[in-house]
Design a protein around this nucleic acid. Structure first.
Ligand SMILES: Nc1ncnc2c1ncn2[C@H]1C[C@H](O)[C@@H](COP(=O)(O)OP(=O)(O)OP(=O)(O)O)O1
Ligand SMILES: [Mg+2]
Length: 352
DNA sequence: CAATCGTCTTA
RNA sequence: AUAUAAGACGAUUG
């Protein structure tokens, strides 16, 4: 709590909230009104936070369309609550980093989707040719408060902080003017929610580790790797049981399946067994167009002299099991955009 | 090469 | 029309 209320931490949080220019919460205070409000009321709020008497406002319910046509229920905290939560999140995410599993890649500092994809490819290369692809149903909305608080208490000694987080969980939602209690879930739109969601699924990570399974997780989307279809089916059903019984969450059966890694999507990337010859021929074609346009026939002669591989300079990599990864310069990625890879069912290109 | 804005992607 | 993290691109100021 002391570290949360540290001056530097608070101004970093304030800058982040202001930079986002997000919409107002239930009190209809905008982010540029926040600074004036803080000048007047901050000393009082700071004292309430230190004493554990601060009462947060409920979140504002706003619905936005999801890509599949359904609605996503956002919970927008007030600008002030976003500031306080961001200040907590900055401290919490660094403290939890040491306890989080290495194969969890979502919502974490210094980790990205490419690292998750890289791990997936290494795993496939080792001969794990069956995959259990899982997504959770309405993940944030269904997070169990008691389980989350138990998890937080086990790792965090600060009673004031725990109390404040609990108040945020129980702050309620405001749906067109009418306040409702929040009995479960973390709000989609609160700065603290992503790190709390990782705390919940950290249990799942270590359970998979205990069962000595290879996996990669990105938020609520995870892949577990096995070497046969029967093993995959067995893992899928035991996972459903574990997620339901121990985490009080449900696996989204529409978005989950046991299959071949090269037939499924993970983080918008597709894997393919297509051979290098096809790939090389296709890249050659694209490159010719790009180089002729950019440097004319001089560039084209240079390509012929150096060859595609040397020209790419950032090399194409081949794997033992026919899974390909390409890397390219930013300029090349612009010439060969990822949607071409997607349309052809090839793995996308990672810039480096 | 330090900082600040703007667009976009993944969950 | 919110949040986090990473990344890409574009622009600007010294
Ligand atoms: N735009 C967003 N704003 C805030 N949080 C988000 C947003 N998109 C996704 N999230 C968070 C909350 C989600 O529970 C979590 C997983 O996303 P996603 O799997 O797409 O939806 P979901 O799990 O809520 O519903 P479902 O999977 O049943 O369609 O990521
Ligand atoms: Mg989901």
């Amino acid at each position: 709590m002391v570290r949360v209320l540290d001056r530097n931490n608070l101004i970093r949080a304030l800058k982040q909230v202001q930079r986002n220019k997000g919409a107002a919460g239930v009190d209809s205070m905008t982010v540029d009104e926040l600074l004036d409000f803080l000048k007047q009321h901050w000393s009082k709020i700071r004292q309430q936070l230190a004493e554990g008497t601060y009462q947060s406002k409920p979140v504002l319910r706003v619905e936005i369309p999801k890509p599949d046509g359904r609605k996503r229920k956002l919970g927008i905290p007030t600008a002030l609550d976003r500031l306080i939560q961001q200040a907590i999140a900055q401290i919490m995410q660094e403290e939890w980093e040491v306890d989080f599993h290495n194969n969890s890649y979502g919502f974490r500092p210094r980790r990205n989707a490419h690292q998750a994809i890289g791990y997936v490819q290494d795993t496939i290369r080792e001969g794990y040719n069956w995959v259990v692809d899982c997504d959770l149903e309405a993940f944030f909305d269904k997070v169990n408060h008691d389980l989350l608080m138990t998890q937080l208490k086990a790792h965090h000694k600060d009673d004031m902080l725990l109390r404040l987080i609990n108040r945020y969980l129980k702050a309620g939602v405001c749906i067109n003017g009418i306040k409702q209690a929040s009995l479960k879930g973390v709000p989609q739109g609160a700065p603290l929610s992503p790190v709390l969601s990782n705390v919940v699924l950290n249990n799942l990570d270590w359970e998979l580790e205990k069962r000595q399974l290879r996996f990669a997780r990105y938020a609520d989307d995870f892949m577990v790797f096995v070497k046969s279809e029967t093993a995959g089916k067995r893992v899928m059903s035991s996972l459903q049981r574990f997620v339901g019984a121990s985490l009080r969450l449900t696996v989204n059966t529409q978005k989950s399946a046991v299959g071949r890694p090269w037939e499924c999507n993970f983080l918008g990337f597709t894997f393919s067994r297509r051979g290098l010859r096809d790939l090389d021929k296709w890249i050659r074609r694209r490159l010719r167009c790009y180089i002729l346009k950019r440097w004319g026939s001089k560039g084209y002669r240079m390509l012929r002299r150096l060859g595609v591989d040397r020209f790419l300079a950032w090399n194409t990599a081949k794997s033992a099991h026919g899974v390909w990864r390409l890397s390219g310069s930013p300029a090349l990625t612009r010439a060969l955009p990822n949607r071409y890879f997607r349309n052809l069912g090839l793995p996308e290109m990672a810039t480096r």
